[in-house]
């Protein structure tokens, strides 16, 4: 019996969200008095995991798994669950990990609970807190089934150091699964930081007046190492790509810092970004509803505030 944590990686580096998932797995395993094992597919940076307390790393090196495939990965992890007699799998909530988690629960005929924000309140019965109604509420959910697949909301638990130097490593052989699903091409976006992985998101709305004014938004994002995002009408009008649309019907944001510029703060927008830790609102209308949801606010014209803010940040 152990808690498995799937550790997503890209280009031989673990995602930061994987360290958070591992921290969570360690916390859960301690609470249950069992071991925590990391599952690693094609990544050799095992050293970097030590700080977060895994007992064992199960390593898969496989040409067949060189590109992410939810089906192949799900079957690989399902096999490890069997051989390790593991009933709990923890994943992060990146797009790939959520995709995989749902598929894995189908393959293993078990339940998947996503958007989890805390360690279980109790282990027996197994009750866990998750967000629902697009961050407008929390649910304390009991997971009845023995096998549990759990994905944790980004930045909800945090990365917690818990060093373990006596880390065991084991190479796992998996037999491949046939799939007629084949990747033809991957088009990478030019922006360097993605919304899903970003610590900081700089987001702008209709208050910016037109697509030609986004240069200062991009510069601000670049200065902060942030991802750029936008409100729904901005992507609907084609000012920005729809991959930047955040909110209830767009991408969810749960960054550490969310900066909203010229966005009014409609309920559908707030729903999708509410789980971000700290919110800064810049708007020239003191009545904008967004100020009610903000931690810090600047009442002012974005066209004056943003260039000045960039200048001051650069001078730091």
């Amino acid at each position: 019996m152990s808690v498995l944590v799937y550790l997503e990686s890209e280009n031989n580096k673990f995602k930061k969200s994987s360290y958070e998932a591992l921290s969570y797995g360690k916390g859960l395993a301690d609470k249950m008095g069992v071991q925590v094992c990391g599952v690693v597919i094609n990544c050799s940076d095992i050293e970097s995991l030590k700080a977060y307390g895994p007992d064992k790393i199960l390593k898969i090196e496989s040409q067949d798994l060189s590109a992410f495939s939810s089906k192949k990965y799900a079957h690989a992890i399902a096999n490890i669950m069997k051989s390790e007699n593991a009933h709990i799998v923890i994943l992060s909530s990146t797009p790939d990990s959520k995709y995989l988690g749902a598929h894995l629960s189908g393959v293993t005929d078990s339940s998947f609970v996503s958007n989890v924000v805390e360690l279980p309140e109790s282990i027996s019965p197994f009750t866990i807190k998750r967000t629902c109604f697009t961050n407008k509420a929390f649910s304390l959910t009991e997971i009845i089934s023995d096998t549990k697949i759990i994905s944790i909301a980004s930045n909800s638990f945090g990365v917690i150091e818990n060093s373990n130097d006596s880390l065991a490593e084991e190479e796992i052989d998996i037999k491949s699964i046939d799939s007629n699903q084949r990747i033809l091409n991957i088009e990478k976006e030019s922006g360097s930081v993605t919304i899903a992985d970003a610590e900081i998101v700089v987001s702008a709305g209709r208050g910016l007046k037109g697509p030609e004014n986004w240069e200062m938004i991009e510069t601000l994002a670049e200065t902060l190492g942030a991802a750029t995002a936008c409100s729904k009408p901005v992507s609907d009008m084609g000012w920005r790509p729809h991959s930047e649309h955040v909110g209830q019907t767009g991408k969810p944001v749960s960054s550490n810092l969310y900066i909203a510029i010229g966005i009014s703060g409609a309920i559908q927008h707030l729903a999708g970004i509410n789980s971000s830790k700290v919110k800064v609102v810049i708007n020239n209308d003191p009545e904008a509803p967004f100020f009610k949801a903000a931690d810090y606010g600047v009442i002012g014209d974005a066209f004056e505030v943003i260039p000045s803010l960039i200048e001051k940040l650069k001078a730091r």
């Binding site: 799939s179 699903q181 088009e187 976006e189 991959s243």
Partner: peptide
């Protein structure tokens, strides 16, 4: 499909 940082095109 939209993935983190891009779009993946597949067939099946």
């Amino acid at each position: 499909r939209e993935m983190s940082g891009g779009t993946e095109i597949s067939e099946c």
